[in-house]
Amino acid sequence: MMPDPARIVGMARRRASVAAAVACLITSTAHAEDNPVVAAIEAAYLTKFAAFIEWPPGAPDALCVLASDAIGRLIEQAESKLPADAGPANVRRLQSESPAAECGVLFISDPDRDAAMPPMAPATLVVTDRAAEGRKGVINFVIRDDRVRFEIDDAEAARRGLTISSKLLSLAVFVKPRA
């Protein structure tokens, strides 16, 4: 018998809730810039998110990176490994002041930045790296059990008109559900 997919998702969510609770106990300060392995993984994940996200029609499709050059290169490398039609067409490195109107995915790697979010299109998937509460994007990388995982704010995704695949949701360590 084939397990009910809904059941799998349910299980994943429960698992995610437990993971979120555990995440609160672990204090990690290591950022992508500190650890090249984590940075490489995050870069690889970043290029794969697009496959599980549905943008509203007419949304921009560039993968914009607001991070160090090292991370930007990693992302460019990861992107180049993907097939042509899998994911955003190009990678753009932004400066903090650069407008982000063209970005389908915006990765902000510096959590300590106090600067406000750059102006962006409404349907932009913001991915943050271990950001503090209140500064998290739709997806936020976290470290769990020495592995790179992520949280998803599905409510924020809804506000931005994005639909996130349940497959991706089921992998998140924490999901903030839609209203």
Partner: peptide, 11 residues
């Protein structure tokens, strides 16, 4: 697919 993509063995 997602578990493979994001290397989630547990999932």
């Amino acid at each position: 697919t997602a578990a493979l993509a994001f290397d989630d063995r547990a999932a």
